[in-house]
Write a protein that binds this DNA or RNA. Structure first.
Lengths: 267, 267
DNA sequence: GTCTGGGATAAAGTCATACGATACCCGGAA
DNA sequence: TTCCGGGTATCGTATGACTTTATCCCAGAC
């Protein structure tokens, strides 16, 4: 069956996360990605954008249309600023919408440094406990079912397998959804991106994963009991543990460059 | 001087916030705004997008180029999803990047309902205290100067004047900046949008504003003292007070529809 | 009758070209 | 040296044609 083949032909890292707006199979999407990575990695750095003639001659011969649409996407995400006649420049980092799913994805691909991972974990540390508290207060039966299903995917599949990782991401996303707060839910993509990366970095450390399973389960129990404070405390513990094991993997493990290279390769 | 005239001819609500990517003076920007408002207000609602022929004939005769670039912007912000053969559809609300500055601005213009304001205050309630704690721990002398300058703008100008409002926004933004966490800083735009709206709704209630001034000052003092816990507690109090007075204005004041209409008018 | 496969079809995507507007650069004049 | 003016580069917009892609429907096979 050729279509099944096509579907499974390559697993991309960001396939796990929420559907992104970035059509990588479309031309403008490729150009946008290439430019974004160049900007985020600092290759372009707040200077003027590479003239389109360069871009389309070096990479692939893209028409002005595709190039402009790619630039429009980057503009919408704050990566570049196009001023009427003076030129299109790469924007300073303060302007980037770092919480945009695509920007996060590009950022990890371009410059997955430790400071950035720390910052994201800090965000998780502040947000996720509160979200868990809300979830405990507002969850419906359907929310519980969704969280349970995600947890089941984690326990019933081998650690760090695709299905297991997907389950972990779904676990956290379901808790966000149970919070019933739409703006808050937008942060789920940032959390998921963080999780995904920490999972890739930690891959192989199965004891750490096994330890985290009861923590997940206990969070679910607190949410079922509508015990917001307990859910928040337990979520705090989970995030801190996750940060520690992730940083341990990054610092101790000399495999880090290899892993990062592999992640980039599987993009 | 005609150019000065043009600058001051209309005060826009979002002029106070960080510079948005939305070029309202460009054609594609206007189309994007119009479509975005139609989607967010529910006028289009997850169905198929109005065929471009309709759009360009009804509103203004815009070329396919401008229309497509507008759609690309909306795609990048998650408001629409374009698929090759099936058409370009308005996306469900879960996909919207509600924390994007432009989307926030459009959301307030299209559908400033109480639930949304509550959700945003909830976000503030969770995030800002933690940010204040970080700011207290990491602030530099320059950060202090920036916060002080913002506070001065609040005290030295008449309540709810433009300069005063700008000062209030700058106060909160400066605290975010002092946290030294880039992803966290992206939430500043959401906080600022919330503040801006609550300020417009509260306008005229000068006693509430006067009461909040010492609160602001005390937060600054805690940050100067590097007392993170105290800064967090005080920020929590400020956010809660702000929510209460804002909701009181919305619920008690029968002026609400009038005010909202006026805000929309000044867009 | 149901399922499968391929072609018709419609919409998005891509390309090429052209023109208008304006900010910026540079050279000439005072 | 300074100021002014025109040229130029670049973005924005418009137009028309062609390509790609996925859906839908119908015909043919089991």
């Amino acid at each position: 069956m050729p279509q099944g083949e096509r579907k499974g032909r390559s697993i991309r890292v960001r396939d796990f996360s929420r559907p992104t707006t970035l059509n990588a199979d479309r031309l403008f999407g490729q150009v946008a990605q290439k430019l974004a990575v160049a900007i985020i990695s600092g290759e372009i750095g707040a200077g003027e954008l590479l003239p389109n003639e360069d871009a389309l001659r070096a990479d692939i011969s893209v028409s002005r249309t595709a190039f402009r649409e790619a630039v429009k996407i980057l503009t919408a995400k704050g990566l570049v600023e196009a001023r009427p006649k003076s030129g299109t420049r790469a924007a300073p980092r303060e302007r980037w919408n770092l919480l945009d799913p695509d920007v996060l994805s590009w950022h990890f691909e371009a410059d997955p440094n430790e400071k950035f991972i720390r910052d994201l974990f800090e965000l998780r540390r502040f947000v996720e406990p509160s979200v868990a508290r809300l979830a405990a207060q507002r969850r419906t039966a359907a929310d519980i079912a969704r969280i349970e299903a995600a947890l089941r995917a984690m326990t019933e599949n081998p650690p760090y397998s695709d299905a297991c990782v997907r389950g972990d991401l779904a676990f956290h996303e379901a808790i966000f959804a149970a919070s019933q707060n739409a703006p808050l839910q937008c942060l789920a993509s940032a959390v998921i991106a963080t999780l995904q990366w920490s999972m890739v970095l930690k891959k192989g450390e199965e004891e750490a994963f096994a330890d985290s399973l009861p923590d997940h389960e206990n969070i679910l129990l607190a949410i079922i009991d509508r015990d917001g404070d307990l859910a928040a405390v337990r979520m705090t513990g989970l995030v801190i543990d996750s940060l520690n094991t992730t940083l341990a993997s990054v610092n101790v493990g000399q495999v880090e460059p290899d892993k990062i290279a592999r992640i980039k390769h599987t993009k």
